[in-house]
């Protein structure tokens, strides 16, 4: 296996602070007293069985889901009901979805320029230059005038990553970015994510790609039933899980 990518964590700078976060869907308690602190440059992988609340957890960070108790702070801004705070946080936090969610009625270039132009008031010329730079970086510069429907799943997901990067976020959230992909396309997306990690981006990834976790993660978090059950460095997490539930989960996903 490839050698681990060393991280450049700034110990004193925390980007995301979640304290005692609780969330309910009706009577269903999805997040139970979740606390998580992410330092600048840190890479975190969250895994766990489906329904364990891992997607909900990262969707709370940019307020796509609302938490009911506890505090979430991103770059010093408190996430509350104020639209201004929410919008500011969303501009700082990039997100990549399982289903890509590119805008099908816009060309690839327009997909990338959309947010810088309309959310940051960036001049169109400048936005296009940035967009081309990121498309180059994810390796699909020549597709910029096509529509998302004309690209493969892997290409679409790379465009989605580039689209988030165009807002120059300080954190990137990945919500199962490779789960909707055909197996032969997973690698091209993971390569982009690894490259992103090398560049020092702060990342929180919900994923079951364990090789990716071993390669880049500083911490692996295991969630079950809405709680953070175990948290460790990847080597200790995979080789010596402390808790039964983690062992069981790992045996299930690693056996096939």
């Amino acid at each position: 296996m490839t050698t681990r990518i060393e991280s450049q964590i700034a110990e004193d700078e925390s980007v995301i602070e979640m304290r005692q976060v609780n969330k309910w869907y009706g009577n269903f308690h999805v997040l139970k007293d979740v606390s998580l602190s992410v330092k600048k440059g840190e890479r975190i992988v969250i895994c766990g069985p489906s329904g364990s609340g891992k997607s909900t957890l990262i969707r709370c960070i940019n307020h796509l889901e609302e938490h009911q108790e506890g505090t979430i702070t991103v770059n010093g801004t408190i996430l509350n009901d104020k639209l201004k705070n929410i919008t500011n946080i969303r501009r700082e936090v990039g997100m990549v979805f399982q289903q890509f969610n590119l805008f099908p009625h816009m060309t690839i270039l327009d997909n990338l320029c959309f947010a810088p132009v309309w959310a940051r008031n960036m001049p169109r010329k400048e936005a296009e230059a940035t967009a081309c730079m990121y498309l180059e970086r994810v390796g699909i510069a020549e597709q910029k005038d096509k529509y998302p429907g004309q690209l493969s799943g892997g290409q679409q997901q790379r465009v989605a990553i580039a689209r988030s990067l165009c807002m120059s976020p300080s954190v990137m959230l990945f919500d199962e970015p490779t789960s909707a992909l055909d197996p032969e396309m997973i690698k091209e997306v993971l390569d982009v994510m690894i490259e992103l990690a090398e560049s020092g981006m702060t990342m929180i990834c919900v994923t079951h790609e364990m090789s990716f976790a071993r390669l880049v993660a500083d911490r692996v978090i295991f969630m079950d039933g809405g709680e953070i059950v175990e948290e460790n460095t990847p080597d200790l997490f995979f080789d010596a899980p402390k808790i039964d539930r983690t062992q069981k989960f790992l045996s299930q996903i690693l056996s096939h």
Binding site: N62, L64, L83, V93, F97, N101, W118, A119, R163
Partner: peptide, 13 residues
């Protein structure tokens, strides 16, 4: 997902 993607980019509702 379409609205979520746009909102997540910091574009106003």
């Amino acid at each position: 997902g379409q609205t979520e993607a746009s909102l997540a980019l910091g574009v106003s509702p």
